[in-house]
Amino acid sequence: MISIVVPTYNEEQNIERCLRSLADQTVPRETYEIIVVDGNSKDRTRELAEPLADRVFIQTSKRVGGARNDGAMAASGEIVATTDADCILPRDWVERIERTFAERDIVQLYGTVYPIEGGFRNKLSLLGANIFSRLGYYTRTIYFTLGCNTAFDRDAFLRAGMYRCIDAGDDLEIAQRMRKLGKVYLDTGLAVGFSMRRYQQFGTLKSILEWFYIVLRGGDAGGVSYSQREYK
């Protein structure tokens, strides 16, 4: 079984779209589970998620990495996949993850992203991210794994110590520990729809610079407000 963990916080505008895409997969619904881990939302996120998910509960660990860890600890599957509440998953996402783990001796799988919103600037922004992801993978330097499109062998994930509960860069850092336990594999065809709302509302350059600033500080945001942002 594959367990899919979706962290949420005030996502009533997006959570149904995300979960409906997860419910509409090419494999039978009973062969995978959906776990929503909520950061104590003040809107209707949990209410909307309940009919579409197998489990919905409030996280006890800190930050988005902690929410993913809480979901992994509650998971029944041998494979734990993670995505974000504002993403749209392709119909073969679960099937492709399942097949890749069956065919390859890997501990972590990750893919690419494309913008849900249109526009040349959005496409260019994610083109750069996908190029960086490929360069890091093929040069075996930095595995640019995104929490919105990754999957783990659950036992290896637990042995690695799971995600660090930091403000940003947790999905990049985990791959550096996972690679010590086995192969981390990039499937460029495993692509999910990624919301560009942060970049549209707060600016692309500013958001990228804030992310790098936090990563260079070891995941500590300092005075930068990066996580649990309020979106219009």
Rank of each mutant, 00 (worst) to 15 (best):
V80R: 01
E47L: 09
G118P: 04
R91G: 04
L127F: 15
G66Y: 01
G71R: 04
L52H: 09
L89T: 12
G77L: 08
A81M: 09
Q59F: 05
P51M: 10
D54R: 00
W93A: 07
I131F: 11
S76R: 12
G118A: 06
Y110C: 03
D86A: 14
I79S: 02
L48P: 02
D105A: 12
V56K: 01
I58H: 07
R55Y: 14
I116S: 07
W93Q: 06
G65L: 01
R68N: 02
G71I: 10
D54L: 03
G128C: 11
S41K: 02
A75Y: 01
F120M: 11
V56W: 03
L126W: 14
K123V: 13
R63E: 10
G39L: 02
D38S: 03
P115W: 12
T83Y: 03
T83D: 08
F57A: 10
R68I: 02
R44T: 13
E30L: 01
I97C: 01
A129G: 05
D70C: 06
Q108Y: 02
G39T: 00
V36C: 05
A53Q: 03
E103C: 06
E50K: 09
T83F: 02
L109M: 09
T82L: 03
D86N: 14
I106E: 04
G128E: 14
D84W: 03
T60S: 14
G118L: 07
T112W: 09
G118I: 08
G118Q: 07
R91I: 07
V113Y: 04
L126H: 10
P51Q: 13
S125Q: 11
T82Q: 10
F132G: 14
K62T: 12
Y32M: 06
Y32N: 04
A129N: 12
I79M: 02
E47I: 11
D92C: 03
A102G: 05
S76Y: 05
E33H: 05
S76A: 13
N40H: 15
R68S: 01
Y32K: 07
A102Q: 09
G128W: 12
E33Y: 04
S41H: 08
M73W: 06
T100F: 03
D86F: 06
T100M: 04
N130T: 12
A53G: 08
D105S: 11
T45W: 02
V94E: 02
E103M: 10
R44D: 15
A102S: 13
A102Y: 02
G71F: 10
S76T: 14
A72M: 06
R68P: 00
C87N: 15
I116H: 03
R63D: 06
P90N: 09
S41V: 09
I131M: 13
I34D: 06
T45Q: 03
I79H: 00
G119P: 10
N40C: 10
P90T: 11
S76K: 15
P115K: 12
I58V: 15
Y114H: 13
T100C: 03
S41N: 07
D54G: 13
A72N: 02
E95G: 00
K123T: 12
F132T: 11
P51W: 13
I58N: 15
G77D: 11
S125R: 15
M73G: 04
A72R: 00
T60M: 09
F101N: 05
